[in-house]
C-alpha cells in the first residue's frame, strides 16, 4: 500500500519537475529578453538590471539559473506582470480560487445530476426513458460550451433579464477577500445583508455553472449508464438473485459499488476538460478567474504572467488528478494491488 502511494508521489514529483523546467525554459523561448521575461520589469535602469542579474544569476550557467529560479518560486516571488506591474503571486492567488469555485460547483452539479440519471437510464435501458436520456446527453455534449453560454446570455440576460450578465457579485457588495471562494467569504465576513449578498452571488453563479456543467453531466450520465448495464448482466447479480435477495438489496449492496468503482477514475479525468471549458467561459462572463486572466495576458503579450499562470494551473491540475487517482486506487478493493500505477 505504501509502495503504491510512493509510486504515485514519485510520478507527481517527476511531472512537477518537468513542468517547472518548462516554465523556466519558456523565459528563453518567449520572444524578448529572458531576464525581462523572468522578472517582469521592463525599462530597467542599469542599477536595477545588475540587481536582477544577481537575483536570477544570469551570469552563470543554466543549472544555477534554474536553481535560483526554483528558490524564488518557492519563496513566493514570482515576478511582476508586464501589464499591471503588480506582483504575480498576488494576482494568481486572487484569480485561481475564483476558477476553482466555478469548477467545483460545476463538478458537484454534474455528479449529483449525472450519476442518478445515468443509473435510471441504465436500469431501464432500451425503453423510452433511456432513449430520451441518451438523446439529451448526445446533444448536450455536442454543444460547444461557449456557444451555449452565448445563447444562455441571449435568452436569460438580454431577452428575459432574469440573471446578471457578468462578474461574480454586484459591485455594491464589498466582500473582503479571505479564501477567494465567494460563498465562503460572504459567510465569513460581517457585512450587513448576508442573505442578499448570497442571493446575488448565486444569481451570478447560475449561468456560468450551467454552461460548464451541462457537458460534464452528459458525459457522466453516459459513463454511469454503460457501467450499470455492464454490471447488471454479470454473473454475480444472477447468483445474488438466485439466493433470493430483493431487487433493492441487489442494487444498493452489489450494484452501486461495482458500478461506481470503475468509472471514478474516468470521471476524475474529466477535470481537464472542465477546466478548459471554464477558462473559455470566464472570458464570456467576465468572471475574474485565472482563465480570463491568462487570456488577457496573452492578448497583451504579458510573458511573465503567462509563465507563472501556466505553472500554477498545470501544477494544480496534475496534483489534483494524481491525488484522485491515488485515492481511488487505495479505496478500491477490486483492483489488483500489484498492478503498475499509471495516471
Amino acid at each position: 500500500m505504501i509502495r503504491y502511494a510512493l509510486r504515485y508521489l514519485n510520478l507527481m514529483v517527476l511531472t512537477l519537475l518537468v513542468l517547472s523546467v518548462v516554465s523556466f525554459a519558456l523565459a528563453y523561448w518567449f520572444p524578448g529578453d529572458p531576464l525581462t521575461n523572468l522578472s517582469g520589469i521592463q525599462e530597467a535602469t542599469p542599477q536595477t538590471e545588475r540587481f536582477l542579474a544577481e537575483k536570477y544569476a544570469t551570469e552563470h550557467n543554466l543549472f544555477v539559473q534554474y536553481w535560483h529560479y526554483m528558490q524564488l518560486v518557492f519563496s513566493g516571488d514570482w515576478g511582476v506582470s508586464f501589464s499591471s506591474g503588480l506582483p504575480l503571486y498576488d494576482e494568481i492567488t486572487l484569480a485561481l480560487p475564483a476558477t476553482l469555485e466555478l469548477c467545483a460547483y460545476a463538478f458537484l452539479l454534474s455528479l449529483i445530476v449525472g450519476i442518478p440519471l445515468g443509473f435510471i437510464a441504465g436500469l431501464k435501458h432500451y425503453t423510452g426513458t433511456d432513449y430520451t436520456v441518451l438523446s439529451l446527453s448526445v446533444f448536450s455534449y455536442s454543444i460547444p460550451a461557449f456557444w451555449l453560454a452565448l445563447i444562455l446570455i441571449l435568452i436569460f440576460c438580454l431577452q428575459l433579464g432574469w440573471l446578471p450578465l457578468s462578474g461574480r457579485i454586484n459591485l455594491l457588495f464589498d466582500v473582503p477577500h479571505q479564501t477567494g471562494f465567494i460563498v465562503i467569504d460572504i459567510l465569513l465576513s460581517d457585512i450587513q445583508n448576508k442573505s442578499a449578498a448570497l442571493n446575488d452571488a448565486f444569481r451570478h453563479l447560475v449561468l456560468p455553472t450551467i454552461s460548464i456543467a451541462l457537458i460534464n453531466t452528459a458525459i457522466t450520465v453516459r459513463l454511469a449508464r454503460r457501467s450499470i448495464i455492464d454490471v447488471m448482466s454479470k454473473g454475480y447479480i444472477i447468483a445474488a438473485r438466485s439466493r433470493g435477495l430483493t431487487n433493492n438489496q441487489i442494487l444498493w449492496k452489489h450494484g452501486v459499488r461495482n458500478t461506481l468503482l470503475p468509472i471514478l477514475p474516468l470521471i476524475a479525468a474529466q477535470i481537464t476538460t472542465l477546466i478548459t471549458n471554464a477558462m473559455v467561459i470566464e472570458t464570456i462572463f467576465s468572471w475574474p478567474g485565472i482563465g480570463n486572466w491568462l487570456i488577457q495576458a496573452i492578448y497583451q503579450r504579458d510573458y511573465p504572467a503567462i509563465r507563472a499562470g501556466m505553472l500554477a494551473v498545470s501544477s494544480f491540475v496534475v496534483i489534483l488528478t494524481v491525488s484522485i487517482e491515488l485515492i481511488t486506487r487505495l479505496l478500491d478493493p477490486t483492483r489488483d494491488k500489484n498492478e503498475r500505477g499509471t495516471i
Binding site: 454475480y236 447468483a239 438466485s242 439466493r243 433470493g244 452489489h254 459499488r257
Partner: peptide, 24 residues
C-alpha cells in the same frame, strides 16, 4: 418466487469467480 428462492432452493453456479461480487 423470491421467497422460495431464498428459503427453499439454492443454486451453485459454474464459475465461482464470476458468481462472487468482487467488491464485497
Amino acid at each position: 418466487r423470491r421467497k422460495i428462492m431464498r428459503k427453499e432452493i439454492a443454486v451453485v453456479f459454474q464459475n465461482p469467480q464470476a458468481s462472487l461480487d468482487p467488491s464485497a
